[in-house]
């Protein structure tokens, strides 16, 4: 279904050149199914709340070592946090984590069962295509020919982002329930490390979001609109 290209035509109008044939004014492909778009936007809101409330929770103990003596890592400003105080932030965090998880599960379930994951999943076949894309984006290299909806670098970025999302949930579970998920906490190096990983994964996700926003801006309006309508008019990338 995805990657299917249709032509957008103009039947009548000033620009019409030939009377017999309608002119093609653009080509478009249906790239983002409704479930994906819904999950994307709900998850965007959830991620925003999770980061904001998470930073407020972090403000209660902005450290990773011992409580006595406590060495604070950074003083995150309250203005850039959600919840007002620790209890309020926990309410936001423990509410929106369900929305965050639900959209993640729905997205993954849909992608797997519809087969749509093939559009975006980074596999070994995409490895050779990553470097040309990096050269194009960062070192003014020639634009590689991309026949798929996602280029190899995009696949790598989005697949990594999904992996980070899963990690954010798993590390969070180990902080929330270190005893019930003791085996999982053990794989992360224990409760202390789970908290460090959770924090690190958040920054990794924010780094992805920054890169994602830059690319969306660079690729223009049609690219952004495609996540709203599902239809992408600019098939260049």
């Amino acid at each position: 279904m995805s990657g299917a290209v249709i032509e957008i035509i103009r039947e009548k109008g000033k620009d019409k050149v030939d009377d017999s044939d309608p002119i093609v004014i653009a080509r478009a492909a249906y790239e983002h199914p409704l479930v994906v778009r819904l999950c994307h936007w709900i998850n965007t809101v959830a991620l925003f709340v999770m980061v904001g409330s998470g930073l407020q929770i972090f403000r209660a103990f902005p450290s990773f070592g011992a409580k006595i003596p406590q060495k604070d890592l950074l003083h995150w400003p309250k203005a850039f946090a959600i919840g007002g105080w620790l209890g309020g932030a926990l309410q936001w965090h423990l509410t929106f984590m369900w929305i965050y998880i639900a959209t993640g599960v729905l997205y993954l379930g849909y992608q797997i069962f519809s087969g749509n994951y093939r559009q975006v999943l980074f596999t070994h076949r995409d490895v050779p295509g990553v470097w040309p894309m990096v050269k194009h984006y960062f070192f003014f290299g020639p634009k590689p020919v991309v026949r798929e909806s996602y280029n190899p670098l995009q696949k790598q970025a989005y697949t990594s982002a999904i992996g980070l999302g899963v990690l954010s949930v798993l590390t969070g579970l180990c902080i929330w329930k270190p005893i019930q998920f003791s085996w999982l906490a053990w794989t992360m190096g224990g409760f202390h490390y789970a908290r460090i990983w959770h924090f690190a994964v958040m920054w990794a996700i924010l780094f992805f979001v920054l890169g994602h926003l830059v690319m969306v801006i660079l690729h223009g309006w049609n690219n952004f609109v495609s996540m709203l309508t599902g239809w992408k008019k600019d098939l260049g990338y």
Binding site: I6, I8, I9, R10, P22, I25, L34, V225, T229, W231
Partner: peptide, 14 residues
């Protein structure tokens, strides 16, 4: 192929 007006309609509905 799709007429541009219809495409706009489909887009809006989506």
């Amino acid at each position: 192929s799709i007429d541009e007006k219809k495409f706009r309609l489909v887009s809006r509905r989506e």
